[in-house]
Design a protein around this nucleic acid. Structure first.
Lengths: 339, 339
DNA sequence: TGAGCAACGCAAATCGTTTTGCGAGGAGTA
DNA sequence: TACTCCTCGCAAAACGATTTGCGTTGCTCA
């Protein structure tokens, strides 16, 4: 059936062409498409036939002009190079592509543009929803989001302010668990390299570090904590400083940091986990490939992406209209060889 | 200056509001924005002031309705989970975000949707350009692209057909180089695990494998070649079969395949590179983290992304209108511990 | 046979821009 | 003074859909 696809002119078929081909008015074609009003079976058949023949597809710009909806969502992430985020994006696609949504991804890490600039650019396209996984925001532009009719889901924030729904994994429990595990194995000086402390996950994970120590009956020493960035370079920087303090375990805010830390440890002639244990967070695919394989907290990135997408969809379609919701996915400690 | 951002009503400011605030007509506002006609300095100042005050941003749907351009490009990739592609996307962003383009990413690997479905969905949004990194296509839908006024850049295809510009790394030379390297080190039975043979990179790399053998004066044995898929699972499948043939080196079509192959080799109680050498292609970040670190061909993903974006931009803006161009980036053999 | 009622289709307004033909006013020149 | 140019701004027509108020038509039922 799909064999012959006649083209008209330069390939642009508009609703009027379909109407003409089917011998009806454009209204009728639109009604067939939307189902907003009943259309007689024979007529409907003629219209559908014409649509098929001409290969007609409604122009999204024209459509969203009337409807005020773009059927698109934007994902704002800090660093597309961090394997956690592509997986997150894949989860979003799982849910939203079948629904016909366009998904755009904006990397906010570009040093040339501020998060506000990125947000302005994103908002300008009037997406129906935004998934903000880039957290450092101070608000200003965030307020524009709620002022517009764009729905917002944040990854791992505080539900305090009325800034949309939240999906998070239980960061605090995750890191507390890893600290407990290290304490159990007898590590005494457990240090912590965190990511950007302005971000929600960093705050929650720092909280988890303290909680883990407390629960293990250990003293919290601020000198053993460093806030860098959620990158390999951040891990390098953090480990350089902390190694001087002779810790015997290094809890890292994410796997990338752990990789960087291991670079430094190896460079210093030490071995993991004999001289010093290292743990990560996220469980990116590379974690299992490292040598030694990384003990880390498994963060279900793709599931999180799906959850975010579903929440967004609920808002966009009006299935849920009430107050902000929060969904917390659970993490799982994955013990490998580095601890 | 940016402190006060007055909101009107529900936050939707249209060009007419700006015109009213500045005491001019909408035409004048448009001319200030586009610069298509001269506008007097004092008037222009009033308009710009009003735009700033109201926080006006032109509605992209309305705009593209007239201009027939969406200022967006789509990236179609086989698998966002393969770290090569996020890096590619980052390169595209490097070039296109500053220009104000919206970048959407569509993962074509979803088993639920055919490439044709994905392309239809992508084309429906009328992007100004498409970067196709998903190659298996048999044409049908590809032809729709050229029928529309959407520009196409393909990653690593054959320039034969008039299907847009091409950017590729020198796959053939890359693999030939790695084969030569192995031969030089004295490996005798060099096998090859490839990805989907319907794709352009797979064909080029297979060609490189043969050329490498030829240049080293070795015999080509079809039994030592397997075409699987460009994934870790593909590597597992390929290695399972090939190991029975007792090769002493395994050239893999990409790094993911190499990872899968090493899984199998380890499982068989063999060690790399002592019992068998393994090489990859792409040089994803994990390649250096593997144990043993992977000998691979460095593929400049981000650079490739930038090159694609520039080619697309040249077409979109009309800087280049001639026949299809091809840009080949060079690869570099990166010898580590696995060979 | 005529009133009443569905069922269905049409015309026209609308969404927010860009673009173009035209005219008003002022400056420069003969 | 009259003529020609500029410079600059306005009004109105697209772009391609959705939506709504009304008119037809044909049927049922009394």
């Amino acid at each position: 059936m799909a064999g012959a696809v006649p083209r008209i002119g330069d390939g642009r078929v508009v609703i009027g062409d379909v109407a003409a081909a089917a011998g009806v008015s454009v209204t009728t074609v639109s009604h067939v498409l939307s189902g907003k009003r009943p259309v007689g079976a024979p007529t409907r058949a003629r219209v559908e036939n014409a649509i098929e023949m001409l290969g007609y597809q409604p122009n999204p710009s024209a459509r969203s002009m009337r409807t005020q909806r773009t059927e698109s969502v934007a994902i704002v992430i800090p660093d597309i190079t961090n394997p956690f985020f592509p997986l997150l994006a894949a989860g979003v696609q799982d849910v939203l592509h079948p629904e016909g949504y366009l998904i755009s991804i904006s990397d906010a890490d570009l040093p040339s543009r501020s998060l506000d600039d990125v947000l302005r650019q994103v908002l300008n396209r009037r997406p129906d929803g935004i998934l903000m996984a880039s957290y450092g925001s101070t608000g200003h532009e965030l307020n524009r989001i709620i002022a517009s009719n764009t729905h917002l889901v944040r990854l791992s924030g505080a539900p305090e302010d009325e800034l949309g729904d939240i999906v998070s994994s239980d960061d605090t429990a995750g890191v507390a668990g890893v600290v407990g595990h290290l304490a159990e194995r007898g590590y005494r000086r457990i240090a912590f390299i965190n990511g950007e402390q302005s971000t929600a996950p960093a705050r929650l994970r720092a909280e988890g570090y303290r909680r883990g120590l407390r629960e293990a009956g250990r003293r919290f020493d601020p000198a053993l904590v460093r806030a860098e960035s959620f990158t390999r370079a951040g891990g390098v920087a953090g480990a350089r400083r902390l190694l001087e303090l002779r810790p015997d375990a290094l809890v890292c805010g994410n796997d990338l940091i752990a990789v960087g830390a291991m670079d430094v440890i190896r460079g210093a002639g030490l071995t993991v986990p004999h001289d010093i244990a290292v743990t990560g967070y996220d469980d990116i695919e590379a974690a299992a490939l490292l040598s030694p394989a990384l003990t880390t907290v498994h963060n279900p990135a793709r599931e999180i992406g799906r959850a975010c997408a579903r929440m967004l969809l609920d808002r966009i379609t009006g299935v849920h209209t009430g107050p902000a919701r929060e969904e917390v996915l659970s993490t799982r400690l994955t013990v490998r060889d580095s601890s």
